[in-house]
Design a protein around this nucleic acid. Sequence first.
DNA 1: ATGATTTGACCACA
DNA 2: TGTGGTCAAATCAT
Length: 276
Amino acid sequence: MALGSPAAVVVELMAMGQQSAAHLGELLRATSSSSPSQLCEQQELAAEILRCCGRVIAQLSRVPTTANNKRKAVDSTTTSSLPATPPSKKRARGGEAAREVRNETTADGFIWRKYGQKEINGCKHPRLYYRCAFRAHGCAATRRVQQSQDNPAAFLIAYYGDHTCGGEAAIAAATCQEGDGMPPAVINSGASSNAAAAAATADRNMGLTTLLAAAEQRSCDSETSQGWSPSFSSEMEMEMEAGFDFAGADEPWADSSPVWDFLNGSFDWEFVINSL
DNA sequence: ATGATTTGACCACA
DNA sequence: TGTGGTCAAATCAT
């Protein structure tokens, strides 16, 4: 998915929707006037919004893109006969279509596990490699995260492969646990270039261990789950605690961007739908 | 002890 | 041959 393409715009919008829903959930949790049952219901609504956004992203991720045609010549000859060989150590993603997203956060509601980091020529920041934390379940989704050169607060995230895992049940259930906050759903050290971020990463690790254990259990309990429900991300929490305001006027896309059009109510949805 | 992260090495592609 | 993607052993954190 190319930057600025309609699908990329929708993914970006849905990511913002996730953040908004996450923010809503945080606000609801901070509101103590509601009864426990009401609070749980409100949080479930917020979680439902997150799930919807995540499913839209997942569906869009399956849309073939014509913008990234970096397939190698050999790929065109092998599409009809998939090789039975195990994944190679390199260029395994060469034949897959990358869906690139530029975002203010690396959090996207999925649980990722970092498996590599590489200094890239001409880039100030290293490139980080993540794979789905549910790879053991056969999920081959990976992503590549790189800090933007011109805007260190922004991340260029390229997604490869589809999420075939079914770990959403644990996350969705965990969002409504009595007396417990929303759990971290993303293992991410993408911005952990300082001690504070590293400490935050360490904090998240505990969450993942628990979450994965729960997911293992839930995936056994509910095999019918087909989708993947993104949930609250601790990165989102961190950004909200830091006053993250995605409607701020200093956003890089605040002028004449599709996202801004969306916020203004003048976004051309028909164009997007037709383009898809 | 277990699981996650780091990082050097390996390997394939251009 | 250089670059970039992945592996896996070592290290770290809990």
